[in-house]
Amino acid sequence: MGMSAGYHLARRGIKTLLIDAFDPPHTEGSHHGEPRLIRHAYSGDPAYTDLALRAHVLWKEAEQQSGTELLVPSGVLNLADSAVYSFRSQLAEAGKQKVRVEQLDAQEIRRRWPALNLPDSFEAMYEPDAGYLYSERCIAAYRGLALAHGAELLTNTAVLHVTAREGSVTVHTKNGEIHGGAAILSAGAWFGALSPFITLPIKAIRKVVGWFQSAPDFDSGNFPGFTLGTEEGGYYGFPGIGGAGLKIGRHDTGLEWKPGEKLAPFGTEESDEGDLRRVLEAYMPGAAGRLLKGAVCKYEHTPDEDFIIDRHPLHPNVLLAGGFSGHGFKFSSVVGEILADLAADGQTRHNIRPFSLARFETPGQSQAGQLLEGI
């Protein structure tokens, strides 16, 4: 989100400094391990579908400007046991927004993708115009574009704390103080390190993904990106790309992580491989081969799994962007545009009311992040 915002600010001619504790793209956040789904048909607040469609346009623009393939229109097959999840609201929103979707029953799913082993209770919503993004390429592309437009980047520069007053912000780093008129904080799973300057209802969680040896039926070009809602939990994944094997991760569950703690490597928990393998053996047996690679990353999400895009409650010249993990990467192109709007103009044409901090001040919070909806 920060790299995208840096690009959008710099292209407007605004003096922009980007600060990262590491050297992006890197493995210390939530963006490594390549593909991330980009889909358009959301339920809940219409803002999500609006933003997903705008994000797609901006990704294609970044792709053209950087000369790098970022988005693969593989289609996304959203699968679910009808006993645990329904696509009814997503299909309705897709109809309103004119997003192309196909509703499929189990028989039609098996006919089109015969390698799937699905009971008759399953149904699907297929999005032919959706696909996946090469996340690390996206970070690198926005980095290059931001720098080409005059932004500066400080790598390996950890932020120790932040202070602010009217009209100015000071970022205190291990290498000294940096002063600016405004700041955007998009620290992801590391937001906890910025307390007490800002304390957000964001929890960081250790998550794992695995790449499994799979049959050609599950290779890119033969199989789409997918989500999978089952009694065993909510999963997501990608076809085998360049011989890497099918990639799968679990959206729910996970162990809480705090900045500064060691992140346990893949395989530390029996469930790391076990949960992924069990669901593959049950529903995608042709993709349940040898584990080729496992990786760990950090989710960071809010209690309702909706984003936070707002101003600091005490310092309006400090913008906050967090709680994106699970389904946020696809939106980073447009979130960068939103943050640049707010920083430069004080307002944005995009609807960000659902992402206000005010929602945590009263009871009755949204529960949009259920099972598949958060993927």
Rank of each mutant, 00 (worst) to 15 (best):
G6H: 07
L9W: 00
I14W: 09
L18N: 08
T27W: 02
I38V: 14
A55Q: 04
V57Y: 06
E63P: 06
Q65H: 11
K96Q: 10
Q103K: 04
I109L: 13
A115W: 06
Y126P: 03
P128T: 00
Y132Q: 13
I139L: 08
A140E: 12
L145M: 07
A151V: 01
V159E: 14
A164R: 10
G180T: 10
A183F: 05
I184E: 08
G188H: 04
G192C: 03
A193P: 05
P196Y: 01
K203Q: 11
S214T: 13
P216K: 10
F218A: 04
F218S: 10
D219I: 07
G221E: 05
F223K: 01
P224V: 04
P224T: 09
G242N: 12
G249Y: 12
R250I: 08
G254M: 05
P259G: 04
E261T: 06
P265G: 02
E273G: 13
L276Y: 09
R277T: 14
M284Q: 07
P285A: 02
L292P: 06
I308L: 14
D310E: 03
H312T: 03
L319G: 01
G322T: 00
S325I: 01
F331H: 13
A340H: 07
H350W: 04
E361G: 09
Q365S: 09
Q367C: 08
Q370L: 14
